[in-house]
Design a protein around this nucleic acid. Sequence first.
DNA 1: AGGCGCTTGTGAAGACGTGCACAAATCGCG
DNA 2: CGCGATTTGTGCACGTCTTCACAAGCGCCT
Lengths: 256, 256
Amino acid sequence: MSQHRHPGASGRAGAVPALPDLPEATVARLPEYLRALHNLADAGHETVSSEGLSAAAGVNSAKLRKDLSHLGSYGTRGVGYDVALLIEQIEYVLGLTQRRAVALVGVGNLGHALAGYDGFASRGFRIAALLDADPSRVGEEINGLVVRHVDELPAIAVEESIAIGVIATPAAAAQRVADQLVAVGVTSILNFAPCVLSVPEGVDVRKVDLAIELQILSFHEHRKASLTALPATGGSALTALPGGLAATDTQEAIGT
Amino acid sequence: MSQHRHPGASGRAGAVPALPDLPEATVARLPEYLRALHNLADAGHETVSSEGLSAAAGVNSAKLRKDLSHLGSYGTRGVGYDVALLIEQIEYVLGLTQRRAVALVGVGNLGHALAGYDGFASRGFRIAALLDADPSRVGEEINGLVVRHVDELPAIAVEESIAIGVIATPAAAAQRVADQLVAVGVTSILNFAPCVLSVPEGVDVRKVDLAIELQILSFHEHRKASLTALPATGGSALTALPGGLAATDTQEAIGT
DNA sequence: AGGCGCTTGTGAAGACGTGCACAAATCGCG
DNA sequence: CGCGATTTGTGCACGTCTTCACAAGCGCCT
């Protein structure tokens, strides 16, 4: 790409696209901010303070300001952030200005649901292909897309320009699919199969395991149960917990 | 930490086993270890070294040892860990020794898939109720369970002892459902709706947002693209990256 | 124009997580 | 019985993330 002017332009002579290498923790929160911003925009807000936005996104306001400061100074002191401008900025940084094609492999139970999930399209992704290794599933039409055989992947990768692969197969098949995706040049994979994937350097894999989330909750349940079973150390032990139970990823008691 | 207290048989000597408050990062990895251990057990292994297990789980071996050390000393120097014993220990700590009842609210696209997902049952969870607010969906049978109206929640919470609530509704309905779950005593919620939930203190909420995962991958795609587009500053900039691209949560190039 | 209230952006400190490197411990074998 | 090979458990240093607290900047009102 040549000079990719930021959406909002905003001067800064010939500034490079200059994706500042954001902290990973910040990157993980940007989509949340983006969603909150869209909600605010729909509600008619033109500007929002860090306090307001952080509340809508469920994070600490200082954290939000620091996160946003990493992508440049797009706020106005005494006023807040311009909602529309911030949306453009975040979408640019996240690479959402171009609609990315997603190949979904495995149209079983979960794959079916993913194929019909609205959230993808509304966030700038386009499911470009549905694939499965089971011949009996090939040909089925889901949500306007016909399921094709996974061996057609090379051809499909040429037709559509696949940017991201989603694996929703059983664990036993996941590694093979990953290899096939990598072979056709896919460098980002979202893995729903409960297994570890081995991929060459430069390929990013994110994993989502629904059962793991439940197990983490189970731990906290177990822990809470064992705590309430202890009448000792005064009731304060339970009510005075500042945020000790709070998990890194777990949103906690926000109050109203 | 000298006296090993086995989950099942151990004598529950008045005092609660006193779950050592594990670092949250450790808790999040335990389920992964558990899965790897089950695989090893199925493959006939009786013991496993930290090196072997960490490879199977896709983590650093030192990290694994430190994680396991938090739950006590269950390894044997020079030998490794007893697979069966470690499975018991982790399952105990995670509270999986008792099968927990899960209420799934929202049987739309995603809810349907979750209702049919094998991974829950095989990990010690039991979907005890399917609920929906849409009367036209009530009565439908999915995987042997009949969908009931969400207003029946109080009754159901008494019948079954619901430990965890799963929200798979549209975002607009999620907060109301969360309130209903909290009202019947649920203190752990897994939220698939793309919104922030507000819950009272002591209630744990974990969120899974499929679109967010894709957006994070999109960022890395965008970043990789902008890097390869820059021939300047010597090729070293690209090849010399030690692990700079590596994401905290993203598994990276494990090589073979 | 000047002051005042509000909000951003950031320095600094602390909490947390990670990974190296090594001492301690165990087994098997001669 | 002792020795070496092996592997766990952990002290320590380093990097990342979070949070507080506050100066700098902006707009509005008088």
